[in-house]
Computed example of a mutant assay.
Amino acid sequence: MNREDAASPENRDDDEARHLARLLPPPVTEDLSPERFRHQKELLMNHIDADARRDSRAQPAARPTRRLLRPALLVPVSAMALAGILAGGLALGTDNKEDRARTTTATATRGTDSLLHRLSTVALTSEAPVVRDDQFLYTRSKVREAEIGSGKAVLSPLTETEGWAPQDPRPLKKIGLTRVNGKDEVSNAPLGDDNGTPAGLSRPTYHWLASLPTDPDELLAYLRTHVREDAGRETDQIVFEQIGVLLGGVLPPKTAAALYRAAANIPGVKEAPDAKDAIGRTGLGIAREDTKHGNRTEWVFDKDDYSFLGSRAYRTKDAPYAKAGTLLSSTAEIEHAIVDEAGQVPGKAAPGSTGKQQAG
Score class of each variant (00 low, 15 high):
Thr159Lys: 03
Glu160Met: 04
Gly163Pro: 00
Trp164Ala: 01
Trp164Glu: 06
Ala165Lys: 12
Ala165Leu: 13
Gln167Pro: 01
Gln167Trp: 01
Asp168Arg: 04
Asp168Cys: 06
Asp168Ser: 08
Pro169Met: 03
Arg170Trp: 03
Arg170Met: 06
Arg170Pro: 03
Lys173Met: 11
Lys174Ala: 10
Gly176Gln: 03
Leu177Ala: 10
Thr178Asn: 09
Thr178Asp: 07
Val180Ala: 12
Val180Lys: 12
Gly182Phe: 00
Gly182Val: 01
Gly182Ser: 08
Lys183Gly: 08
Lys183Cys: 06
Lys183Trp: 11
Asp184Phe: 05
Asp184Ile: 05
Asp184Cys: 07
Glu185Cys: 12
Glu185Val: 15
Ser187Gly: 10
Asn188His: 15
Asn188Arg: 11
Ala189Thr: 09
Pro190Arg: 05
Pro190Asp: 07
Leu191Thr: 10
Gly192Gln: 11
Gly192Asn: 10
Asp193Ser: 14
Asp194His: 13
Asp194Lys: 08
Asn195Met: 11
Asn195Ala: 10
Thr197His: 05
Pro198Ile: 13
Ala199Pro: 03
Gly200Asp: 04
Gly200Tyr: 03
Gly200Asn: 04
Ser202Met: 13
Ser202Phe: 09
Arg203Asn: 07
Arg203Tyr: 00
Arg203Ala: 05
Thr205Glu: 00
Thr205Lys: 00
Thr205His: 00
Tyr206Asp: 08
His207Leu: 13
Leu209Trp: 00
Leu212Met: 07
Pro213Gly: 02
Pro213Lys: 11
Thr214Gln: 14
Asp215Val: 14
Asp215Phe: 01
Pro216Ile: 10
Asp217Ile: 10
Glu218Leu: 13
Glu218Asp: 15
Leu219Gly: 01
Leu220Phe: 05
Leu220Gly: 04
Ala221Arg: 08
Ala221Asn: 11
Tyr222Gln: 09
Leu223Thr: 01
Leu223Pro: 03
Arg224Pro: 03
His226Cys: 12
His226Ser: 15
Arg228Cys: 07
Asp230Leu: 13
Arg233Tyr: 10
Glu234Trp: 01
Asp236Val: 04
Asp236Cys: 06
Gln237Leu: 12
Phe240Val: 13
Glu241Ile: 09
Ile243Glu: 07
Ile243Trp: 00
Gly244Ser: 11
Gly244Asp: 07
Leu247Thr: 02
Gly249Asn: 11
Val250Glu: 05
Leu251Glu: 02
Lys254Met: 15
Lys254Gln: 15
Ala256Gly: 06
Leu259Arg: 04
Tyr260Cys: 10
Arg261Pro: 00
Ala262Lys: 07
Ala263Thr: 11
Ala263Asn: 02
Ala264Trp: 02
Asn265Gly: 10
Asn265Ala: 14
Val269Gln: 03
Val269Cys: 07
Glu271His: 12
Glu271Thr: 15
Ala272Trp: 01
Pro273Glu: 12
Pro273Met: 06
Asp274Gln: 12
Lys276Phe: 08
Asp277Ser: 05
Ala278Asn: 04
Gly280Gln: 06
Thr282Ala: 08
Gly283Asp: 03
Gly285Ser: 05
Gly285Ile: 08
Ile286Val: 15
Ile286Phe: 01
Ala287His: 01
Arg288Lys: 09
Glu289Gln: 12
Glu289Val: 09
Glu289Gly: 09
Asp290Ala: 05
Thr291Asp: 14
Thr291Arg: 15
Thr291Ile: 13
Thr291Gly: 11
Lys292His: 13
Lys292Gln: 15
Lys292Trp: 11
His293Ile: 09
Asn295Tyr: 08
Asn295Met: 15
Arg296His: 06
Arg296Phe: 03
Thr297Val: 13
Thr297Ser: 09
Thr297Lys: 12
